[in-house]
Design a protein around this nucleic acid. Structure first.
Lengths: 226, 226
DNA sequence: AACCAGTGTTAACGAGTGTTAACCGATTGC
DNA sequence: GCAATCGGTTAACACTCGTTAACACTGGTT
């Protein structure tokens, strides 16, 4: 293992948090320990951890709200909730807020570590297979190719990136500046115009299926409809 | 009920599958019965069912894997897992793979049907928000389109938003300042005038059905009558 | 080194969208 | 009945986006 994996831990009970932090560190994880939801969000943005462990009940910002805000930026980052509640209803609520797993307090460290490994493995697997159906097209993200029946079109890197993000937020608005920052690194005027050019290119390459549309939402961004 | 609702059922035990299929059909569902995960995926793509009932243990492709692949295409389609296992771990795994509910075998048909209805209701709420009948028009909110017979009109984002909110409070008064705050963010004088302009635009675009009217309620707001 | 193909950026112009202004009729309260 | 206000409508305007093409840069080939 070359680089330790960064985990963000948000927990307002200091004693518990400290124990979890230390025992994760003995397993060679790097742990960013935050005492409330707000500092957790700041740390998430700054440090880009690979997995989040969030207490649901926290001062300033609860775990569910935090998870939603993080999900807006990263659809796939694994999130584990720690909760004192245990009814199915709360579990379901957790999943609806974008959680991938949950642990009822009190929990054993073994349990937590097993779940962390499970989610990390799954996540690295997902990265390998990025073949996405978009209407009658099949989009292979890693190969940067579009298939329409037997026909095959090569996409450029930018085209593929953009289409990938569009397909992730299918039928929802993909925020302009968010995507500019992600792909271009900066949402200045020129990059924005460049992005428009790529939208045109994608529209052309995907016009064989009339049900697919990339709709502009003035002032906000684009929506991939299919 | 005009169109029967399509349900995809994937179950490798033929006897059980047949029973479920038939008793769902007596409830006026259309059932696509598949014996393994692979044929289920093909059928899902071809037939676009509204709900999936998946056995977890199946040859060729298990229910969890199948669910993930389906989820990649449709974030909202309800999925019910049928499982012989019943430990929390498996339930959690089910939810992780994108399931909305699960049933432990053996189960009663009543149980299954209750859950199907529960999920369809929840989903149809969401869907009702998408494709809306307004008089002789069909309004697709996500596509931002108005259909009148075969005729198709593209709406702008603002038009679509406004019409959506009008249709939500059909035959009731839609409060001016409420809607201004929701769509424009602020209910100042200029935005209010802007909204009036959009009301005019919508009236023009919907004048083909004379039974539809957008009536002003002086001092309060507008009412969509149809 | 000269050439070339591929990719992404910048420029330029035109079309689409939403806001503001202007004018006018309708409704309300006095 | 009259002034005041609200809403209906149209048009001008500012700004965003769509599209095409020219341009710059990269890396590979001869």
């Amino acid at each position: 293992m070359s680089q330790p994996i960064k985990i963000l831990l948000a927990e307002d009970e200091l004693a518990l948090g400290q124990i979890v932090k230390e025992s994760l560190e003995t397993r060679n994880f790097e742990v960013l320990f935050c005492e409330n939801g707000e500092s957790a969000l700041r740390n998430y943005i700054k440090e880009k951890p690979e997995l989040l462990v969030l207490d649901v009940m926290m001062p300033k910002k609860d775990g569910f709200t935090l998870a939603q805000e993080v999900r807006a930026q990263d659809k796939h980052i694994p999130i584990i909730f720690l909760t004192a509640k245990s009814q199915t209803k709360d579990v379901v609520e957790g999943f609806e807020h974008g959680g991938n797993d949950y642990l009822k307090k009190p929990f054993s460290m073994e349990e937590l570590i097993v779940r962390i490994h499970a989610l990390l493995d799954r996540n690295s697997l997902k990265k390998a297979k990025d073949v996405i159906n978009i209407g009658d097209y099949i989009f292979d993200y890693t190969k940067q190719k579009l298939f329409f029946n037997t026909e095959e079109t090569q996409l450029t890197h930018r085209e593929a990136e953009l289409l990938f993000h569009l397909s992730e937020t299918r039928n929802e608005i993909l925020d302009r500046s968010l995507i500019l920052k992600k792909i271009w690194g900066d949402d200045d005027f020129f990059n924005a115009r460049s992005m428009d050019v790529f939208i045109t290119k994608l529209r052309k390459k995907m016009k064989k299926d009339e049900n697919i549309q990339i709709v502009n939402v003035r002032g906000y961004g684009y929506k991939l409809i299919c």
